[in-house]
């Protein structure tokens, strides 16, 4: 019998706790698979921020450090500078990386820190119950924008990869989606490219995943995918924004 699919060694045996239809799980699997395929499970350290994304430390099967809300790129810097031979990555939510941790993220990129950052953008703060994030769309209702986000009051959605792709220290920058099997393959290619960029010592790499949060969006899993396609895809620039020369 031919084995067509196996659970990756890149994930631990602990069952995911994520809500039904949340795409954090798919993103975990992609990262786990790529780590295994590149033979990186024994020489990689992951760093989490805080949020639902913070649980990645339980599930992705490598050494991990759990940092504070937003500080993962600084912690990853400390690890990478201490052990340049290791592959170091962060796994952060959009509240974590684009709001409270913006300085650490931008400066890690500006320094050309040879780490990889994974940003999971679900357009709100998942763990704390769906409040407005810097990524929340204009008009989107959240627990702290109950009348819909108004630009006069709360400004505009921040597309971090676009910003970071302008920095010389950033070598590979992409935004991907995991809404269809085809896009999952594309996302996986981006993850592989990001790790390779780090391993080749070319600089900072960032992959943003557009992701769902059915629980806080108040939608079914299927509706959530649709909502993401209809509302998030036009706002965040999808594709490889920057590749190594």
């Amino acid at each position: 019998m031919k084995t067509l699919f196996e659970r990756t060694q890149g994930l631990t045996d602990i069952p995911f706790h994520y809500c039904p239809g949340c795409t954090h799980g798919i993103i975990h699997r992609i990262i786990g698979e790529v780590l295994e395929e590149l033979h990186l499970l024994e020489n990689t350290v992951g760093v989490t921020g805080v949020g639902c994304a913070g649980f990645a430390e339980q599930y992705i099967n490598v050494d991990f450090q759990g940092s504070a809300h937003g500080r993962a790129p600084a912690v990853a810097t400390g690890i990478k500078r201490a052990h340049p031979e290791l592959v170091v990555f962060t796994y952060q939510g959009d509240g974590d990386m684009v709001s409270i941790g913006l300085a650490e993220a931008v400066h890690a990129a500006a320094r050309g820190e040879k780490i990889t950052a994974f940003l999971v953008n679900n357009a709100n703060y998942g763990m704390t119950g769906g409040q407005m994030a810097p990524t929340t769309l204009i008009g989107q209702k959240t627990a702290t924008s109950p009348y819909g986000r108004q630009s006069e009051q709360s400004g505009f959605p921040l597309d971090l990869p676009v910003l970071i792709s302008n920095l010389p220290g950033a070598a590979y920058v992409a935004t991907v989606t995991v809404d269809t099997p085809q896009n999952v393959f594309k996302a996986k290619r981006a993850v592989r490219q990001a790790f390779k960029t780090q391993m080749d010592g070319l600089g900072f790499s960032l992959v943003q995943f557009l992701s769902t949060c059915p629980t806080n969006w108040g939608l079914t899993p299927v509706e959530s995918i649709q909502w993401m396609q209809d509302n998030m895809f036009p706002v965040f620039r999808i594709g490889e924004l920057k590749q190594p020369q």
């Binding site: 500080r71 690890i79 290791l86």
Partner: peptide
Amino acid sequence: TFVQSESEVAAIYMVFGAAGSGERV
């Protein structure tokens, strides 16, 4: 290795990362 951080917030978390990886920092 010497790194000038962007803030004291970042500095202490860089220290965190290096200490967590077993180095004197």
